[in-house]
């Protein structure tokens, strides 16, 4: 992975944090305003705690997640098998043999473009045999996608 991927994950986790925190604020506001009889009194009185808890719990994760991901995410192509590891709390290992690859996409979102990063999407006939490798340096991604496409064409095996 490129080191700049950390920045990308940081941006993404910030956005996620903003959405969650905003949602919690809205919910707290709504609970505080409504006098819905079903809810016990102590809940609506302490609704302001909700965004606070969400903020306190999630704020460190905003920093931890990108670093952790950077430590976990790996990819390699060897022996005509693509191997990719991803995740942080949960992990995922994907093995895709080049001979079963149907398409190789190289994609760039806004942030990725700004950071000169790219995502390589490897598609097979099955979602469980497909892999998305995020946060590659653009040139690396281009070369990797190119090589994969070339190899896939050579090894194409139409078993599925």
């Amino acid at each position: 992975m490129s080191r700049r991927a950390i920045a990308l994950w940081l941006i993404e986790s910030l956005i996620g944090f903003a959405i969650f925190f905003g949602g919690a604020l809205l919910l707290a506001f709504w609970i505080g305003r409504s006098d819905w009889a079903v809810l016990p009194g102590w809940l609506s009185d302490h609704a302001w705690l909700l965004p606070l808890v969400v903020g306190v719990v999630m704020a460190p994760l905003v920093i931890i997640e990108p670093l952790w991901r950077y430590a976990v995410h790996r990819w390699e192509l060897s022996g005509d098998v693509v191997y990719a590891r991803s995740g942080w709390l949960s992990r995922e290992w994907v093995f895709v043999p080049v001979s079963r690859i149907q398409t190789v996409d190289k994609a760039q979102g806004w942030f990725e473009r700004a950071l000169r990063l790219a995502t390589v999407e490897i598609r097979t006939a099955s979602h469980a045999g497909s892999s998305t490798i995020k946060g590659l340096d653009y040139d690396v991604a281009a070369g990797f996608a190119e090589e994969l496409a070339r190899r896939a064409q050579e090894l194409r095996d139409d078993a599925t």
């Binding site: 994907v94 043999p97 469980a128 045999g129």
Partner: peptide
């Protein structure tokens, strides 16, 4: 066996 196009191994925190 020949129908397999790839493997995904997944492990959540709790599974780990």
């Amino acid at each position: 066996r020949r129908a397999i196009v790839g493997w995904t191994l997944r492990q959540t925190v709790f599974q780990r």
